[in-house]
Nucleic acid binder design. Structure first.
Lengths: 338, 338
DNA sequence: CTGAAAGCGCTTACAG
DNA sequence: CTGAAAGCGCTTACAG
């Protein structure tokens, strides 16, 4: 195990004090051009780089953001994860990743682990934080931003799409296409995201004077969504359209419906939510509400940095609207058909 | 910003020395039952947890593994990432994530960043490490394990599937099904993974006395694979089977071929490589070589831990075989058809 | 088993 | 601008 190069060694080689070396590598600190040059030269020769951990101890800033994720099988998250990581890296932060093992109860232990690493902030993508945990973070002065998940009255900041409005828009598109027997396979009722989209569905149906064909909690799970779809399509009367709480479930619904011999959108229109890359692929060609990942990521990073730097002390609830992406899995609005 | 609780505060409240507190939280250190009890009580009351960063400074072990990833849009990686993270968490390590921004040249700067955090090891998923970088890590005593990527003569450990054999098996399946005009849309020629699978293809063809219909480098990219497929299928003579270098490209090939009006496997059989979850979905139902992610992850973590703990000083090259998963996108072997 | 002390590699007032 | 010194929160020989 070769020795690590320390600032002291650089100092000796450069013929300056250890403090001087530190100053050269600390932005905002003052050093004469001559010192800077000598130090940089020595550092380059030795291959010196400051120990981030040691720096973190002094400054109290680790420049590490804890990122808690689940549902990586839903294509929305890998993309979000990648963008989040890139955006944070661009700001000089890095992501310490925490995945929730299936075996575990939830985020409890994970967040404690996170705090042990003295993270500067926590981004929780699609996971809930218990109120106890939220208090713990708040008490420790660690900002938390929820990504694609809301938690009313938690005092936590959150960034989501405009889910109520989105649910409404998707449903309205189905209504405008002339559908009347519209079902909703909803996102998990335990999540605000799922509830809000359902709310939008219900509002749109009520405004149109329509009764939902059915509303089922798909739990954001493929198998539950598939089973729900199968059951609906087996009945005497069948829905002529299904709004599904996210794309991940919608793909399973499409597979199921087609396997049963029905045509999409001939027999039933399907609309999803998220607009993950797969939705645009020919095999699905899914009409869906776009969640603007890039803008959601930007907002998340901005909010996080504002909190870390003490610019924002209050929690933010940011909702970002996205458009409906009309594709082949649903009939177009009546006016547009020939 | 509330104060962090330190071991000194716990010591005072428990009426012991700071060293005693440290010992209680250091496994392997000796403390009397009475001390342990007093300290644990005081720690719980204060909400004390050891500062991992401070510990890392002393011990020289950060218990952080740097994970470099690219291609997160290929469904194989999110799954691998999740399993890798879970496995490492189970061993008391955590993952510092590094994504390669599209703008960047490659892993160069990223690995330097990584080392600044004093990571105990680096796992590079599907990215190459320049020989300079490899030396740098080696010089710093940081173990590197390549995941799903091989790099001959780099002195780096790697874990992959048995790509040559896998390419052979996939191709043989096509031959056994009676195909004769077999094309290969290969993985990136700059990667050993891509080259090995191609090698397997060529070996199988040669053994069977067949000439490849075409071999094109798909670069592991959807659009290139799609364009290649389009071109092949537009020609006068068309392939009756295509072995595609990974599933990610195979989906694009299937979309393209179907959009052109051809039937799969009626007009052309398609076989992929990876067996990502999507391959099993009804819309694709893709025959493919399974890469045993779980065993690959296990091997990666084992290798990493062995190197960290100094049990293995030599680099390991581990290849794990997986089965062919026969699905609907390719004709079954001739013998099995009725 | 336990406390006092040194030290991990840095940053940052404090004097000059 | 610069060096000597203190200190971040721990772990770990070293004596007892």
């Amino acid at each position: 195990m070769p020795q690590k190069v320390t600032s002291l060694q650089v100092a000796q080689r450069a013929g300056v004090s250890q403090s001087a070396v530190s100053r050269v590598f600390t932005k905002g600190a003052s050093a004469s051009p001559a010192t800077v040059e000598k130090v940089k030269k020595a550092a380059a020769e030795l291959g010196y780089r400051p120990n981030v951990l040691a720096r973190a101890m002094i400054t109290g800033k680790s420049r590490i953001i804890g990122l808690v994720v689940a549902y990586l099988d839903n294509q929305f998250y890998p993309e979000a994860l990648e963008r989040l990581s890139n955006a944070l890296q661009a700001e000089g932060y890095h992501v310490l990743l925490f995945t929730i093992p299936n075996s575990s109860e939830g985020v409890e232990g994970v967040v404690q682990d996170l705090m042990d690493y003295q993270v500067d902030g926590i981004i929780a993508a699609s996971v809930s934080i218990s109120s106890g945990l939220a208090e713990l973070c708040h008490g420790a002065g660690i900002p938390v931003v929820l990504f694609n998940r809301g938690q009313p009255d938690s005092g936590l900041s959150s960034v989501t799409s405009a889910n109520i409005k989105g649910g409404h828009t998707a449903t309205q598109a189905l209504i405008d296409a002339g559908h009347t027997r519209i079902a909703h396979i909803a996102g998990w009722g335990g999540s605000l995201t799922g509830r809000d989209r359902k709310q939008g569905f219900e509002d749109a149906m009520e405004n149109a004077g329509l009764t939902p064909f059915a509303i089922i909690d798909g739990m954001f799970k493929r198998d539950i969504a598939a089973a729900s779809a199968r059951q609906m399509m087996q009945g005497q009367t069948r829905p002529d359209a299904i709004f599904v709480g996210n794309d991940h479930m919608a793909f399973a619904v499409m597979d199921t419906v087609r396997t049963m011999g029905f045509s999409i959108p001939g027999d039933v229109s399907i609309i999803g939510y998220d607009d993950v890359p797969l939705a645009a692929w020919a095999a699905y060609d899914l009409t869906t509400m776009r969640q603007p990942v890039n803008r959601m990521v930007e907002a998340t990073v901005d909010t996080m940095l504002a909190q870390i730097n003490g610019r924002d002390t209050y929690s933010q609830t940011i909702e970002i609207e996205g458009p409906l992406i009309q594709r082949g899995s649903s009939l177009p609005p009546k006016g547009q058909r020939q």
